[in-house]
């Protein structure tokens, strides 16, 4: 079985000496393509740290990480930046769109980063914005969009370069319940229709209904692991 994410015994230590913090103490995790995966747990339990490691933003202190068949830290110095822009899409708590780019330009950006330019990039961006229901807002700056629209554009941006893995850190926290749920359903649909592995960090138990699996972190360890629902594959 090919996994989108395969993590073994991830350990992360921040700082040293008196400021030493062991944020992850050995986390194992596998996510298949098309799965929507939730990471839950109290504040400080290491959720964001896990996400940053999976997203290749920081390196683990120990452990093995295989993304989309690539054993990242096995041999040589990995070009994390390149792997990141090719394999991973990010969705942040605050949409974090680039304020000086329009919705469409924000979606075009990750395409340009992998060398897709011009008309092709623009068409792809419009297609995604359309897919996420914000096509008519394409030429607006983020500040002119509502919170929900911003988050949809952010999802479009995370999907633009067709990453195998999308990582979302509390993507619904800045939205009300209804919009939060609608964003989750959207991610659900993306995972189903595009076969993307999506890992969502969330506090919100109401969002759990949409996901396939949940792991619960506590003090840097997985304290609970479970399938939420068996869903028919699209």
């Amino acid at each position: 079985m090919e996994y989108a994410i395969q993590a073994e015994h991830l350990v992360k230590v921040y700082g040293a000496g008196r400021t030493r913090v062991e944020a992850l103490k050995g986390v194992d995790l596998v996510v298949r393509p098309g799965e929507l995966f939730a990471v839950m747990g109290p504040s400080g339990s290491g959720k964001s740290t896990l996400l940053r490691i999976l997203g290749l933003v920081i390196e683990p202190t120990e452990g093995r990480l295989v993304l989309d068949g690539d054993d990242i830290y096995n041999g040589g110095r990995p070009d994390l930046q390149r792997l990141r822009r090719e394999k991973v899409g990010f969705i942040f708590q605050l949409a974090n769109l680039i304020p000086f780019l329009t919705a469409r330009e924000n979606v075009v950006l990750p395409l340009e980063l992998i060398g897709v330019h011009g008309r092709r990039a623009r068409d792809r961006a419009m297609e995604l914005l359309d897919y996420l229901g914000v096509a008519e807002r394409a030429d607006h700056l983020p500040e002119a969009l509502s919170g929900g629209e911003n988050q949809r554009v952010a999802i479009a941006r995370a999907l633009a370069h067709e990453p195998k893995i999308v990582l979302a850190d509390e993507p619904t926290a800045s939205l009300d319940t209804e919009r939060g749920l609608s964003a989750m359903r959207l991610l659900r649909r993306v995972a189903n229709e595009r076969g993307t592995a999506i890992l969502v960090v969330t506090h919100d138990t109401r969002m759990i209904g949409e996901v396939d699996h949940v792991i619960r972190l506590g003090d840097g360890r997985v304290v609970e692991k479970g399938d939420v629902l068996e869903r028919p594959r699209a």
Binding site: V88, N96, L109
Partner: peptide
């Protein structure tokens, strides 16, 4: 700073 950080996380090449 924020936009620069964002570009970094999105994997933007340093020269960009």
């Amino acid at each position: 700073v924020k936009e620069i950080a964002l570009l970094k996380v999105l994997g933007a090449q340093g020269r960009r």
